[in-house]
Design a protein around this nucleic acid. Structure first.
Ligand SMILES: [Mn+2]
Ligand SMILES: [Mn+2]
Ligand SMILES: [Zn+2]
Ligand SMILES: [Zn+2]
Lengths: 135, 135
DNA sequence: TAAACTTTGCAATTGAGTTGCAGTATATTC
DNA sequence: GAATATACTGCAACTCAATTGCAAAGTTTA
């Protein structure tokens, strides 16, 4: 079994044709990809089908999404063992020049002291600036 | 001179009628407000004029914007002394139930170790979950 | 005052995201 | 295996926040 199929099996997602294509596309690309990126990459697959695959993936924790302020949500395959819990979260970096987004997997986000009775569920942490290629 | 006018003077922004109204509206509200919120609040002011005021404010560092994933950018007046530099940045909290956004001004964001040659300019740090009123 | 520049309101456009629906494929039941 | 139920897909249409073009109104400068 290939990597994509394996992941879908583990995360309990029906391995349909479109889903395998989308997940493979994400696995083949190091950096988080937008719906449009994927649509361009998979030229014969419909946008709304890709969109629904991504929604399913997110729900089943196959991928996580990043709101990097570019106007397009980016998607990246969750690292092994990730369950999208607060302790699994990581920073992202958005390059304002080349508009690539990076998962910064090396350091987890610290525990953030919230006001009384605020309960954290998720986070979207984006550092913006210039990446190594653009600085 | 009133607070809004004072701020505009300090930040070198022409204190036009619309700008004063918009800035006052933001000052009167504790929580970051969206363009639509402001439009609703200032019923006789045109959306695009408010929009352009906000863009000017952001450029001149009168306000900072928050991409909280709600689909609408929120704007909040910068705290005194803020210059929107990395050390001025703070976390935000987005309540997934009431969809209010909060500036968490008490703790600044820590220094984040970036990969070699990545240069930070700005950040958009959003913790999501339930606020005190909703949890 | 006249010219130059800035700001504003209105209408129209953009574009990512989302949805309804009918056709196709896959799974389940008989 | 055929009949039925369920899941998935492609297409077209729609939503809605953001953005823009433009001309009118307001302000500053010469
Ligand atoms: Mn990531
Ligand atoms: Mn803030
Ligand atoms: Zn870059
Ligand atoms: Zn709340």
């Amino acid at each position: 079994m290939e990597k994509a199929e394996e992941i879908l099996k583990i995360k309990d997602v029906n391995p349909t044709a479109v889903r395998i294509l989308v997940l493979r596309y994400l696995l083949e690309h190091l950096k988080p990809q937008s719906l449009k990126d994927i649509e361009k990459g998979l030229m014969h697959t419909d946008r709304s089908s890709i969109f629904r695959s991504l929604k399913t993936f997110e729900e089943k924790k196959v991928v996580h999404s990043i709101e990097d302020g570019s106007g397009m949500i980016k998607y990246a395959v969750c690292p092994t063992g990730c369950n999208c819990d607060p302790q699994d979260l990581h920073y992202h970096f958005y390059c304002t020049k080349c508009s690539y987004t990076y998962c910064l997997l090396d350091n987890p986000i610290p525990i953030i002291k919230l006001p009384q009775n605020f309960k954290m569920q998720r986070a979207n942490m984006v550092v913006k600036g210039l990446c190594n290629k653009c600085s």
